[in-house]
């Protein structure tokens, strides 16, 4: 488990510059992500989950906040972001704060034992967490 934390700490600790340029060119967004979920896919999630004001979304395995923060920002939904690596969550908090996004909350949690009440979300998304 320590290796995992180290790997993510290293990955999430790199700011801006060429990494941001590459990510923007590939995914259309800059969240410190290196997966395959593009902005178009995030928009598809918003549409198919019928996200909007008053709806509550759980983003499982959010990394640095992608796509949960983007979805909250663009649809007006509330979002709870969960993941294990703390450095990614710290960056997600900073991102939400910089956007003035008060509808975003961050919780350190695994997908297997999420610390939330039953029936507390309208929608859940995970991107490349199950693979």
């Amino acid at each position: 488990m320590e290796d995992v934390f180290d790997r993510f700490r290293e990955a999430y600790g790199r700011d801006g510059g060429v990494l941001a340029e590459i990510e923007a060119a590939v995914t259309g967004a800059v969240y410190g992500a290196n997966g395959y979920t593009t902005r178009r896919h995030a928009d598809l999630l918003a549409e198919r989950l019928a996200l909007g004001p008053g709806r509550r979304l759980l983003d499982v395995g959010t990394g640095c906040g992608w796509p949960g923060i983007y979805l909250a920002e663009t649809t007006g939904c509330d979002v709870v972001l969960t993941d294990v690596p703390f450095e990614g969550l710290r960056r997600a908090v900073a991102r939400a704060h910089s956007l003035g996004l008060e509808r975003a909350a961050v919780v350190a949690s695994t997908g297997e034992s999420p610390p939330f009440a039953a029936a507390s979300f309208d929608a859940i998304c995970s991107t490349d967490v199950l693979c």
């Binding site: 979920t37 759980l58 499982v60 009440a117 309208d122 995970s126």
Partner: peptide, 22 residues
């Protein structure tokens, strides 16, 4: 993990999973 997520959803709530698979 999926069972835990089902518990968190309101009735008729939706789950979206983007996965890479064989």
């Amino acid at each position: 993990m999926l069972r835990a997520q089902r518990r968190l959803l309101r009735r008729s709530g939706r789950l979206a999973c983007l996965v890479i698979e064989v």
